[in-house]
C-alpha cells in the first residue's frame, strides 16, 4: 500500500509542490527575518604583521636610506682633507622594524683610480679604528686586509640602536712620501679611498637557527 502511494504520480507532484513551497517559504522567511535581526555592534581589529628593517645612522644624524652616502663630513669643501688626521666617525645600526634582530656588519676599504678599483694600492693605509667592545666582536676568520666583519652579540629591540662599530678614520701620512718611479709624482695623488658598509639583520626569534641559516654562523664568532 505504502509503495503504491509512493509510486503514485500524485505523490510526486505533491512532493514537488511541497519542495517549492518550502524553498519559497525559506527565502521569504529570511527576507522577513532580516528587519527583525538586531544589528550587532561593529568591532574593529587591527592586525600588525611582523616586519624586519634596519638603518645605518651616521654621527647621531637621521637614519640613512638603503644605499646612502657616508663620510661627507670628511670632505665637506670647507677645508681640504688632511692626510694623517684622525677623523671621528660614528656608525650605528638602528632597528627600524617591529621585531628584534641580530646584526652583522661588513666594512670594506679600498682605493679606486680612473680605471676602477686599484688592487695594487694598499688598503691598510686606510686606517679604520673599530669598536671591539660594547657588544661588537670581529670575526677574524671572515676578515681580510680589505674587509672586516663584525657581529653585535646582543639582539636589538625595535627602535633601539647598537653602539657604534667605528670610532675613527685616518689616512696614513706615509702616502706623502710614496712617489712613482719618475720620482716626481705621488702614487696616491688623485686616488680616491672608499669605505663601504653592509649591515645585515636576522630575526632574534630562533635567532641561532636564523643566523646559521642566513649567515652560516652565529654571532659568537671569534
Amino acid at each position: 500500500m505504502f509503495k503504491k502511494i509512493l509510486r503514485s504520480p500524485i505523490t510526486t507532484v505533491l512532493l514537488f509542490v511541497l519542495a517549492v513551497a518550502l524553498l519559497l517559504g525559506g527565502t521569504i522567511g529570511g527576507v522577513r527575518a532580516a528587519p527583525l535581526t538586531p544589528m550587532s555592534q561593529s568591532y574593529r581589529a587591527s592586525m600588525e604583521t611582523s616586519s624586519i628593517a634596519i638603518a645605518l645612522v651616521e654621527n647621531d644624524g637621521e637614519p640613512l636610506g638603503p644605499d646612502a652616502s657616508i663620510l661627507e663630513s670628511l670632505a665637506n669643501g670647507k677645508e681640504p682633507f688632511k692626510v694623517g688626521k684622525t677623523y671621528s666617525e660614528k656608525l650605528v645600526v638602528r632597528n627600524t622594524g617591529s621585531i628584534g634582530t641580530y646584526i652583522r656588519v661588513s666594512v670594506y676599504k679600498y682605493w679606486r683610480d680612473g680605471n676602477g678599483k686599484a688592487v695594487n694600492l694598499d688598503p691598510s693605509l686606510i686606517a679604520i679604528k673599530f669598536n671591539t667592545s660594547d657588544g661588537w666582536t670581529i670575526d677574524t676568520d671572515a676578515s681580510t686586509e680589505e674587509r672586516t666583519v663584525l657581529y653585535y652579540t646582543n639582539p636589538i629591540a625595535p627602535e633601539s640602536d647598537t653602539t657604534s662599530f667605528i670610532d675613527s678614520v685616518t689616512i696614513d701620512g706615509k702616502i706623502v712620501k710614496m712617489l712613482n718611479d719618475d720620482q716626481k709624482s705621488y702614487v696616491y695623488d688623485g686616488i680616491t679611498f672608499y669605505i663601504d658598509v653592509v649591515a645585515d639583520a636576522v630575526q632574534d626569534h630562533s635567532g641561532e637557527a636564523a643566523m646559521l641559516s642566513a649567515w652560516g654562523k652565529t654571532n659568537a664568532a671569534g
Binding site: 611582523s50 616586519s51 624586519i52 628593517a53 634596519i54 638603518a55 645605518l56 651616521e58 640613512l64 638603503p66 644605499d67 646612502a68 652616502s69 657616508i70 663620510l71 661627507e72 670628511l74 670632505a75 682633507f81 656608525l91 622594524g97 621585531i99 634582530t101 679606486r112 688623485g190 686616488i191 680616491t192 679611498f193 672608499y194 669605505i195 663601504d196 658598509v197 653592509v198 649591515a199 645585515d200 639583520a201 636576522v202 630575526q203 630562533s206 637557527a209 636564523a210 641559516s213 642566513a214
Partner: peptide, 13 residues
C-alpha cells in the same frame, strides 16, 4: 626566517 640588509658608501679623493 626574516632577514634584511642595508648598504652605505663613502669616498674621499
Amino acid at each position: 626566517y626574516f632577514t634584511t640588509s642595508v648598504k652605505a658608501s663613502g669616498s674621499v679623493m
